[in-house]
Nucleic acid binder design. Structure first.
Lengths: 337, 337
DNA sequence: CTGAAAGCGCTTACAG
DNA sequence: CTGAAAGCGCTTACAG
């Protein structure tokens, strides 16, 4: 709707149109438009080109550019579940910001874990000449690498594949578990229950290891009777209330924020106050929940944004040789400890 | 890692390589690869081409194709907050599925509401010859259309701009409010409180209108003293507990699930049971919350997936002439009514 | 300092 | 039934 709005009507202006309008060759236009270093263009010609660009509302065709240069500026991101959690969104966000920063644009595909869809998505990306592909999952786990992925430069994000040779960027579960436990230890707690997930996973193993490491470091002996397996959601936390109470724990480290939310309910029903009677820390930092519980939940953040960003850095070779890159899970302090 | 993995080493095979290997011209290869209707290719030649494609692991270059055809298969999606909520993810998901279905691929850009970033993102998409652009927000509101958007075919998703001439796809807030209220009315409630948001928005106005319409239709006279303004999160719902109790309402329609979550806490503290003493319905169907409250929350879903999908349909001209397209908010029945 | 020309990997009339 | 050739919008040596 403005003066240079020529994008809609007829064919958008090409470099040739600009050249014609400026009375120069397309080579010259190319040089000034791209601000080529080695190009010696007279001030007069340069000005005429710039004017023509402005007047015509010229916009370079990135596809043609890619074709003639041979190198593309696309990075593909295939995700198994954009939808299910806010987490996937953060991975996309981090990847996009980082890609952008280096002049790349993100091609996104959601596959809902469907293998056929995955291979289709990867094929599509390859046809679009992506520089490389980020393959991500919405929770940290080991995956089987899709066939087609081997034909691209790829990095795994929030997942890994032993022996695949593909670099992986994952959260440091053990450090996260240690951090969570330390938050409690630091406040003087010694009898700390751990509501761990029943689902075998890097999170299950890693956070437990971190819990034990923190205990060790603080000179507290590990007590198996203090770790309770629960389903990783509200119902699991709620259901563990009586066990927690019976254990005599003064603090509990919950496998995730949802479990903590359920435990909050159980504790409250039993007249326990948080953190006065029982301190609680969660994991994930799932904002809609943790920031708005009463009291707001202290937790440890899963670094999804950073996972996405680090993924493109690895893809672009900015992180050197990487086997498995561990990204730290920082503590988020609120009022439940 | 398999036999036809030629994508990594050297230059990937081009149509010319296939032609050479099959002993035909590139025109012939093009015809068989694209399965051109009007093309009469001998069985023998066709077979040789197909073999060569398989042996070489040939993959068409989508960018070159776009360039020579003149029409692109990209659709851009610019979002103001991919990160903040799971909602944005659903819009992307719906848009991507629908785009895919029609042979298009999604280019995603996140702008965090930054105007400069928005215009940059749009410019980038235009340079990539997108067919059109979807501009979306993470909550339903009126927006100021970014400059650059006028240079593309665009549709607004989960937002609108009066007088901009741009088609918009938004949730039907009024129908949603009506539906929520009807869930309560149907269960026999007559004194129904409404915890509406304090934030002026289409949601605030629309859901209230729907609430009133449902009441009217049921022959219940609207009582202004039954609508309470609250901040649209847990704290708001919790804080409204005493007002709700004092009002003598037997049911409450909450502006969103987060408000309902807060109200649950307040009700429980006051010894009220849900739904026996007080029935509750939410809005949004924010799964992490609503499905896991005790009891699970009956609510009305915000149709984000469908918003994204309808957006690309409108962009592709599959919905006919559209001014503002209202997408229904369906009820999600659980156990709080 | 500037331009003519070849080339990127495809598609599409047009010949034959 | 199949191929030679022009063209899509750029870039990049290479001349001059």
């Amino acid at each position: 709707m403005n003066d240079t709005d020529h994008g809609r009507a007829g064919h958008p202006p090409t470099m040739r149109d600009v050249a014609r309008a400026a009375g120069v060759s397309v080579a010259t236009v190319s040089h000034v438009v791209n601000n080529k270093a080695g190009a010696r263009i007279g001030d007069e010609a340069r000005r005429r080109v710039q004017d023509a660009v402005a007047v015509l509302g010229y916009r370079p065709n990135a596809l043609a550019k890619t074709l003639s240069q041979g190198s593309s500026r696309f990075i593909g991101l295939v995700a198994d579940a954009i939808a299910t959690t806010p987490f996937a969104g953060q991975i996309i966000h981090g990847a996009q910001d980082e890609a952008w920063k280096h002049g790349y644009v993100l091609l996104v595909a959601n596959t809902e874990g469907n293998v056929a869809a995955e291979n289709d998505a990867i094929a599509m990306m390859l046809e679009h000449q992506v520089h490389g592909i980020l393959y991500s999952t919405w929770y940290h786990r080991e995956i089987a690498v899709p066939e087609a992925l081997h034909q691209a430069d790829a990095v795994l994000v929030d997942c890994f594949a032993e022996g695949s040779g593909l670099p992986a960027v994952v959260p440091d579960e053990e450090q996260g578990g240690r951090t969570a436990t330390e938050e409690l230890l630091t406040s003087g707690h010694r009898r700390i229950a751990f509501l761990n997930t029943t689902t075998p996973s890097p999170a299950q193993a890693g956070r437990l290891a971190g819990y034990r490491a923190a205990l060790d470091a603080a000179g507290v002996t590990f007590d198996q009777d203090l770790v309770f397996p629960v389903e990783p959601h509200q119902e699991g936390g709620y259901g563990a209330t009586s066990d927690v109470l019976a254990s005599g724990a003064t603090a509990v480290f919950c496998h995730n924020d949802r479990v903590a939310m359920g435990l909050y309910d159980g504790l409250r029903e039993n007249g326990r106050r948080i953190p006065d009677d029982v301190a609680v820390v969660g994991f994930d930092n799932q904002d809609v929940i943790s920031a708005h519980l009463r009291p707001p939940l202290s937790t440890v953040a899963l670094p999804h944004y950073e996972l996405g960003a680090a993924g493109v850095r690895v893809l672009l070779g900015l992180e050197g040789e990487v086997g498995r890159l561990l990204v730290a899970c920082p503590p988020v302090r609120r009022s439940s400890v």
